[in-house]
């Protein structure tokens, strides 16, 4: 959507036709911001001078960002436990591995739990990552109880004095209440030993407006504390994440941009927002 910036350049200073507005609206909708959100922005932008439109839109979008902290939780006196959740195929296992690499680079002692006992070979996938990154992976039997793997892992994390435990869980559609309950159980069981500090919801940048329902329902069952927005290296803008922030206050904490462990970075509001409207 070089379109948007070109358009803004074109209209800067001159009056804007209804066709121009349609173009702006179109490009915002195409970023997956949602039809209602877009309408709101357009209304707002119509009120300002044409040379201020771009900054007005950016400022408004910035207001939608969550005020919650985007830093990853950390404790000095006990293990910091991070639960990775999300619907199927968003990149939970890969994100878990990337998070490990990120913590490794800060010389933190990390342990991984393969609590996705459902998807075929998910455990092996995480084990492969564990080998590559030189991190211990706690596993359980295929189709076993994920909560028991998690319990095992938190116990071992405590014993071995790890600073971080990252629990990879099975993908589940947010509409399956039974599976969502299972996730709640994983959390409760871990908390018998030690508190869960972060629940990171992995959202795929290609996701449409369905992402909002996903966030709400995961929030209900496991109290999500942050988002990992994956597949941002593709053509999708990931605008739904901003819609999620606005609707739920869950902050985006990390951005995933590829298949290797290093393709991962803390959220940067400026580049995300400009990606949505300019790029």
């Amino acid at each position: 959507m070089a379109l948007f910036s070109k358009l803004l350049a074109k209209i800067r200073g001159s009056s804007i036709s209804s066709g121009d507005w349609e173009e702006i609206e179109r490009s915002l909708i195409e970023s997956d911001l949602g039809a209602t959100n877009t309408k709101e922005i357009i209304e707002l932008a119509k009120k300002v001078r044409s040379d201020e439109i771009e900054s007005a839109i950016t400022d408004e979008l910035r207001k939608w960002l969550s005020a919650n902290s985007r830093d990853l939780a950390s404790n000095f006196d006990r293990v910091t436990t991070i639960l990775i959740v999300g619907v199927n195929g968003t990149g939970k296992t890969t994100s878990s591995a990337k998070l490990v690499a990120n913590l490794n680079s800060k010389n933190k002692k990390v342990i991984l739990a393969a609590a996705d006992t459902f998807r075929a070979a998910a455990t092996e996938q995480l084990q492969t990552w564990g080998e590559r990154l030189g991190v211990r992976v706690v596993i359980g039997p295929q189709n076993g109880d994920p909560a028991s793997v998690a319990f095992d892992a938190i116990t071992k994390a405590k014993e071995s004095g790890c600073e971080y435990l990252i629990v990879d869980t099975a993908g589940r559609l947010h509409t399956k209440s039974g599976l969502m309950d299972e996730l709640g159980k994983v959390r409760r069981v871990i908390e018998k030993v030690s508190p869960v500090d972060e629940v990171l919801l992995v959202v795929d940048a290609t996701t449409g407006q369905n992402g909002i329902t996903q966030a709400k329902l995961f929030m209900e069952s496991v109290a999500v504390t942050g988002l990992i927005l994956t597949k941002m290296d593709g053509s999708a803008k990931g605008g739904v994440a901003l819609a999620i922030e606005r609707e739920t206050g869950i902050p985006i904490k990390f951005i995933g941009t590829g298949e290797s462990a290093a393709d991962f970075a803390p959220f940067d509001a400026q580049s995300y927002l400009s990606g949505l409207i300019v790029n």
């Binding site: 997956d32 795929d204 290609t206 449409g208 739904v240």
Partner: peptide
């Protein structure tokens, strides 16, 4: 293709 995909569906 994932049924949950958004506006990127067309581009991809």
């Amino acid at each position: 293709v994932d049924a949950m995909v958004g506006q990127d569906a067309v581009r991809t």
